[in-house]
Amino acid sequence: MAAILRAENLEKTYRVGKVDVQALRGVSLAVNEGDFVAVMGPSGCGKSTMLHLFGGLLTPTSGKIIIDGEDLTAVSDAKRTDIRRRKIGFVFQRFNLFPTLTAEGNLRLAERIHANGADDPDRRRAILRMLRLEDKLHHKPLELSGGEQQRLALARAVVNRPAIVLADEPTGNLDTENSTIVLKMFQELNDRFNQTIIMITHNPDAAAACRRTIQMRDGHIVES
């Protein structure tokens, strides 16, 4: 099976004041199309840095990231943004929805950014149906429960058919019941649409829902 994401010897060093902090110390990883990968590890081990690098929000100090055949590390900032727009969908722990827009408005914004104003109401409705948000189309995020907000964030992440969904502790702000619902949605997306997902989590139950688990420690992958 073809790797949709390949990271080779990734290193990332931050400058904090006068001190260099090495967040990633040579990470290599291949993720196949349709994988549902959990990334686990203690705080500060480099999980989020790795996710941000995969999403093109950061650039590595050294190493290479190939996403769906495009080298994220060999391009300009503008091109990296373009790759992110076309290939990546983010889901965050804090949902990060636009509070002034309705559920539909949040999705349409993602569509506009993705395709310069393209509007696909059928696709939008299909996703909202699958995520059981059909009747929440005209609600603003603050009118939704935490679980509904995270499902909406997930809908926004996948509305443009990204190659990979990068989720940063998506159940971290949810209670057990809503966590279960959201994880089911991730699984359904993975099963039905063969959606590749990389998910950071501290929750063993969430990791158990994934097909594969990666353990990180001190900037290394220690178990894959």
Binding site: G55, L57, A78, T81, D82, R84, R85, R86, I88, F90, F92, N96, F98, L109, A110, I113, H114, R156
Partner: peptide, 16 residues
């Protein structure tokens, strides 16, 4: 600031 970060994460270009 945070919303602009979200826009960037969604792939919004500088021009956008």
């Amino acid at each position: 600031t945070r919303e602009i970060g979200i826009l960037k994460a969604m792939g919004a270009s500088r021009r956008y």
